[in-house]
Nucleic acid binder design. Structure first.
Lengths: 212, 212, 212, 212
DNA sequence: TATGAATGAGCATTCATTCAT
DNA sequence: CATGAATGAATGCTCATTCAT
């Protein structure tokens, strides 16, 4: 292992250390009332050091979201690739994966919501923004794939895999989608109905589930 | 109508005016980056005036949540009381009600999430906190009633009405519940599993919905 | 006098109050070591109040330069307009004017130099930058006019009025010129020789002055 | 050459390398906005290394001034010692020398001005302070000598050699003198009129220069 | 010697809140 | 009631300087 490599790894460790501390402090005090000094104390580092690893407070927060997305993505990819599982088993595995994610970071929803503000996005590096968007899309697609598989094998009903993926997604990070609708609105090609449609799809699924 | 009454009504109008402005600003900048001055400008009032109608910024935010809860509650009560509707029609009406709520204030989710922070709760008057809790409970109960009705009439399967109510609730304001779990955790009588259970219930319902 | 007018005047007074305090503190500690809190204390105001009247520290400093330029400009305009003065008397008046300016604010040179940094210019409102440039140019032109007048009346030698104006100027605010050369360099139309030329002109004048 | 000597020379080289980098960075960003890290990057060294060669940032800056003063001093001494030159040729040579200095480091004026702050002087080693003062005085004296020479030979008018030296000096480093007046003011033995006198002298010379 | 990660004091700036008018 | 100028505590962030390697 070269020196460069070791340093890179060391740097990664520090970032983790800070993010874990941040997670603890955010969950205790909320994003706003948590100060960088709080986080530094929790990480047993000095305030200045935080800025060696994160450009600013918003970027630290967004990195927490990126981290959970990466974790989710790995889990989903793994479930999707398990060839020998039956569709229903895959759904079961998916369910477990989602639980895992929640266990890993119960704050996921709040973190994702915090990204919603365009004022926050201004403070993020474009790299980070595009990473988050890419992982979000990947996750939705992988979830959809899992359902597609069930449909192909005639175990699931048709038409709703994406809706299902989305309602799951909405539960965890609804706002990322919301953010995309904003862009659609901006570009004058769409309207505010995205979340409404998601809810509508969810209702249809619910409706089937509760009927005898 | 006495003078006192008229003044009371006038005061209510001003509060509405401010809340509408706050909603617009929050949706644009997010709760944290929105300043009281922004809101005052949007409301065409001076910053000082805001404090004649709301104790502080957190209470203004919480009042937005209370407002949407009141709106939701009226809608739900109305659906529940429609004796002549069949259970499936009631679900359909419920669905429309939820859409209405979303149309009325798409920010509901974020507002509710913001209440989660115990640091925020400290700043609220106990009156406001209890109002919100009461309306939250009423809404869940009314939703549950609607499903109960269907179960009694043998249109819906048994056991899941509350689960259904909760998943809906989770979609809109899950975090208020989450906040309660926090209190449970604090009092050392419970654990973090509330949202997990909600998700679990949701999965079961989903699972039925997608099976042939 | 309308209310608006009175407020405008009041605002101007506050700006003066702050600038006078800033001048005192800057002269005592230098621009960098002077803190906004120092200035606030000196002005018997709170730090926040400073930002109601000046966008940031750099803009407060630049405003000091603008202020002295305005003072200089008035003095010069007055000297230039005195029809009944002989050229030599005008030069004498100009000399007194320059002394006055120096008495008014001995820090002028340092303030002007501080503007030199492009990093500082970034922090200034474009309005302020253009005001400063305009007044600088006006001052040079008015000085040149005074010498022109002497030349026309065959009291002064030809060709050097602008050079003379510039050498005076260089003594007081050389860097503003320097800054303009920077722009010339940027636009690839010029080179770094502006100050050199100024010196060269000065030398020619000096040379004449010291010869028998 | 001994090892000690070679090391000393090596050390001098490093100091030069750093000062050259500092000069570049200062000219780009100004003294205040330039960071030690900027300078280290420009010098392709690490920040820590800078402190092996300079006690602190202020001392690095002052060393730049010292360097230019040394350069100037050598040039002046050489001009002064050229016995075979006529006074007017010496002035011409002096002029060239000043141009050279300006070419060598156009930032000289700003560097000198920065030394003005008594807060800066506190951070300098007394050795460095006395070196700068000595070289400053030497330079003025050498310039004065050059003019004296012309006066003795009846080529220049009497009385103004020091004034001329000072006006030149004021153009380049006026503030070092200014700084001395400050000390005089501090010790309650003098007043603020030094620069005023300098200007007055300059005016007299100018006045002669522009008359027919 | 050289490094560069870590430091932490210091500071500019913000903004919820107040209060004299 | 309404104002909005003033407040000043709070905090994000910087950067000269240090020190273990």
């Amino acid at each position: 292992m070269g020196i460069r490599e070791r340093k890179e790894r060391e740097k990664g460790r520090r970032r983790q250390q800070i993010m874990i501390a941040a997670k603890r402090v955010f969950s205790l005090k909320g994003f706003n009332k948590a100060t960088m000094e709080d986080i530094a104390n929790e990480a047993e580092l000095s305030p200045g050091t935080l800025y060696l690893y994160f450009k600013n407070k918003d970027e630290l927060c967004a990195s927490l979201s990126l981290r959970i997305l990466q974790y989710l993505n790995i889990k989903l990819k793994y479930v999707s690739s398990e060839k020998e599982l039956e569709p229903e088993q895959k759904i079961e595995a998916l369910k477990e994966a989602m639980y895992d994610v929640y266990e890993f970071d119960p704050l996921i929803l709040i973190n994702m919501l915090h990204l919603q503000s365009s004022e926050v996005l201004k403070n993020l590096s474009s790299q980070l923004v595009s990473d988050i968007k890419e992982l979000s899309n990947n996750s939705i697609e992988t979830m959809a794939d899992i359902f597609e598989d069930g449909i192909k094998k005639n175990v699931f009903i048709d038409k709703k895999p994406v809706a299902f993926a989305e309602i799951l997604w909405a539960l965890f990070s609804g706002v990322v989608l919301c953010d995309e609708s904003k862009e659609i609105i901006k570009s004058n090609k769409g309207n505010k109905n995205y979340l409404k449609l998601t809810l509508e799809n969810a209702f249809e699924i619910f409706a089937r589930g509760i009927k005898k």
